[in-house]
Amino acid sequence: MTAQMFFIGFFGLASVWFGIVVFRTFSMVRSALALLFSQTALGAMFLSMQAEFLGVLQIMMMATEMSIMAIFMVMFMMDPGGLGEMDMTHQKRLSLGAGIVAFVAAVAVAVFVDWGPIADVAPDAAQQTVDLGLELLGRSMLIFETAGITILTAMIAATAVAIPPVKRKPSKGATHHEH
């Protein structure tokens, strides 16, 4: 058993365990931060798979994302502290079944497919970063730029949906209501 194998297994297990905690705790902040630690464990797993840039990026991005998620949870849930232990689920048996079927099917595919030759060495971290940069601004530039434009569109659309509608008075005197 190599160190890499151990770390992948350990962080994978941690990630899945925190992922389960997300849906088992009643406190909404705990739930959001459990998701954060699930993603952080995933980032650590990326690091142990020698993808340094992506691992660090994952650890960095998810912290902000999930913290923002935490405040939205507190804003929109009726019982964010979880002291009332409200049940917030429905169709439990169906979803549990679907989750298990999805898991088993994916594992079956992973086990029974012949993945071909396994590569032993990955390029070193600095080389990877250079390669990824050249890939993003070379062959995959169109996809990358499309992603950028899409995220800009999503930001504008989300802001437009989220800002409160301005109510204008029909009378002419109400100039201070116009924006």
């Binding site: 992948i8 994978g12 297990l13 990630s15 899945v16 992922g19 389960i20 997300v22 849906f23 699930s38 995933l42 797993m45 689920t89 429905h90 169709q91 439990k92 169906l94 979803s95 549990l96 679907a98 989750g99 298990i100 999805a102 898991f103 994916a106 594992v107 992973a110």
Partner: peptide, 17 residues
């Protein structure tokens, strides 16, 4: 891959339930 499958399964459960 098993980690990925497990996260996928947990996610499906969460999104549906």
């Amino acid at each position: 891959l098993i980690t990925g499958a497990a996260l996928f399964g947990v996610g499906i459960y969460g999104a549906l339930s």
